[in-house]
Structures are given as structure tokens and as C-alpha cells.
Amino acid sequence: MIDRSSTGPWQSRALPWVLPGLFILIWSVVSGTGMAPAYLLPHPGDVFATAFQYIFKEAGQGAYAGRFLEDFLASTMRVMLGFGLAVAVGIPLGAVSGRLIVVNRILSTTINALRAVPGISWLPLAMIWFGIGIKTTVFLVALAAFFPIYLNTEAGVRQVSPILLQAGAMMGVRRLRGTFAILLPAAMPHIIAGLRLGMGISWAYLVLGELTGVPDGLGALIMDARMLGRIDIIVVGIILIAIIGRLCDVGLHQFLRLCFKSARRHP
């Protein structure tokens, strides 16, 4: 059992941070020298101060102070609900559709047509159906995350070598156990790719879903700040979503590797 994660020297560990560091450096120079005025792009120091206030100060100690935890929990719950729904429908449907040509024929045209519809066009409809609030957001997140999860699961399952299934069958493995012991593990790299794409897109659609007047959440924060012209808060919101999105991606991957041998050991 060889651990394939890169535990190289510090140089290779530092590599992922080169780009963000460079980015902040350029940002500092651009706004420090006045090339970009503060009402277009606030200085990183100001943004950092705003972020500190937003995250760590008590409520009442300034605009937006201390709201982070509440927003974070609200948004995370919406993402998890929507993502969970997409997983619960996407993986079983994808697996069946990858195995049974009939199901695939029935589903593929419709799903690929719906996939072409941009998420934002669902927003007005979702607001009419579900009203303003958590249901609309969860619906949009689930809808958006469903497609990459479904499509990747389907592709993964379809590419499983029939020889592996035959080997299982001759060793006396029946269909149900074969699904969990052979089919899904063999398709695991694709399934992981689908889940990670789905998780990423969930955060994107979260903001869309929160644009519509929910009181809390990171998307609502950004919208609110736009109305009040608080560009520093907008930048804080963007950076926080980027960080949380990345952490979710890493967390998801680690979780899968922890739970499934096939996620740890695939070549």
C-alpha cells in the first residue's frame, strides 16, 4: 500500500502557494501605487481588515462584524443539501444508465438537452415554484451538481472492463454484491471526478441561489454589499468562497480516500 500523495521536499509543497502569493503582490502594487482607485479595487490590507472584522469581531462592532459564522453555516447547509440530493440521484441513475443500454437510451437525450440550459434560466422558474429562500437555492445547487455527477458515473461504469465483471461472476458474485464490490470501485476514478466537479459547481450555484433575497449566506453577503457599495466586502466574500470551495474539494477527496480502498489505490 504505497501512499501516492506527494510528500516531497518543501519546494514542491510551496509550489501551490506561488500563484496566490504572486497575485497578492501584484494586487498590492496595483492598488498601493494608485493605478487602480480604491473604489474599484481596495487595498489588500483593507480587505484583510474587513475580513478580520467580518470573521472574528462580535456583532455590533461595525457593519457586517461577526456575521461570518452564521453566513458560513447557512451557505454550507444549502450546499450540502443540494449536493447530497445530486449525489443521491446522480450516482444510482448514472450507474444504471451506464450498465443498461435501454435506460441510457431513455435518459441521455433528455439529460443532455437539460444540461445545455444555463442554471440562471432556472432561477425565475425556481423562485415561482419554491419561493424565495432555502428551497430555491437547494434546487439550483442540486440541479447544477447533478449533471457532472451523473455523466461521470455513467461514463465510469460504462468503461468498466467486462472481464472484471465476468471474473466476479465466475467467483460466484451475484448482481447486488457485484455492484458494490466490483462495478462502483472499478468506476471510482470517474465517480470521484464527477463528485469533485459537482462540489465545485455547487458553490458556484449557491451564490446564484442566494442572489434572490435570502437574509443570510455568503452569496447574500456579496449581493448586499453590492447594494451598499462595499466593494471590500464583495472581495472578502469572493475570497472566502474560493477558500471554502477549495477546502471542500480537499475534504471530499480525503473523505472518499478514507472510506473507499478503490479511491485510495487506483492506479
Partner: peptide, 10 residues
């Protein structure tokens, strides 16, 4: 089998 038919994750 002639070709490799082992489960690669085991």
C-alpha cells in the same frame, strides 16, 4: 484470463 483481470484496487 489471458489479460489482467485482477481487481486493481485490491
Amino acid at each position: 484470463f489471458q489479460e489482467d483481470a485482477l481487481f486493481p484496487w485490491l
